[in-house]
């Protein structure tokens, strides 16, 4: 099965959340719901609010009047992990679903939820080690452009209560030959997508070059499809 992967260049990523907002707009997500969010190194897998956002590691050392950071010695460090669904090659959510509502697409390995089969039991939410899934209960407050006009992209699957949603790599956009909304919007030009093993792809040299790369929670053996270039 071909596998689409996303590559995030941490040297370029500035944690600006444009990906989060582009996703929210494209998918017309309700209040307080994000498919993808930005985390800092210190709180990469924990919850975060504005009081922890952009928090560096280390300490702001000024005694002695030296550089706080040089290429060789860094007292303060800040790097970003944008985190949505990892589109795992071995997704625990798919295994956990009792109703075969969540599955991997044959053509690109993207994990999809079939809202007609999903009853929102939440077993996939529990199974996902990345906390990438959100339950839709029906109590969500949806923003709409103006009173009665929904916002966002064309062709998003209708939201449905008692289901579970998540990042789909914007499968509706992929099907229309477009890149995911977060990539189109990224002002840092830090996000890339392509088939993992296709040498003609722009991500191939990135993943097979000199740069060190990292996936989230490799010890879970889910083979995630999102790479962070350090």
């Amino acid at each position: 099965m071909p596998q689409l992967v996303m590559v995030i260049d941490q040297k370029r990523c500035i944690g600006c959340h444009s990906c989060s907002i582009a996703c929210k707009l494209e998918n017309n997500l309700p209040k307080d719901m994000f498919y993808t969010r930005v985390y800092t190194n210190r709180v990469a897998y924990a919850g975060e609010n504005e009081l922890g956002m952009d928090e560096p590691e280390g300490s702001h050392v000024i005694s002695g009047g030296g550089f706080v950071n040089t290429p060789d010695r860094r007292s303060l460090m800040l790097k970003y992990y944008t985190k949505g669904c990892q589109q795992c090659a071995k997704p625990l959510c798919v295994d956990a679903c009792p109703y075969e509502a969540t599955y991997k697409r044959e053509k690109d390995g993207v994990v999809i939820v079939d809202y007609d089969k999903c009853i929102g039991c939440g077993q996939c939410v529990t199974a996902c080690p990345y906390n990438a899934r959100v339950s839709v209960t029906g109590d969500e407050e949806y923003y709409k452009g103006a009173q009665d006009t929904p916002v966002g992209g064309q062709g998003i699957p209708p939201h449905k209560k008692n289901t579970v949603e998540k990042c789909t790599f914007c499968s509706h956009r992929l099907d229309a030959g477009l890149k995911p909304a977060c990539i189109e919007a990224c002002p840092a030009r830090a996000r890339f997508i392509g088939e993992e093993d296709n040498p003609s792809n722009e991500i191939y040299p990135m993943l097979n070059g000199a740069r060190e790369k990292e996936c989230l929670l490799p010890e879970k053996n889910t083979e995630p499809s999102v790479y962070f270039l350090k």
Binding site: P56, I62, F67, V68, N69, P71, L76, L78
Partner: peptide
Amino acid sequence: MFTVAASKADYYVS
């Protein structure tokens, strides 16, 4: 201030 820009710099002075 250790800004996002400062975090990207090779040399940072405060």
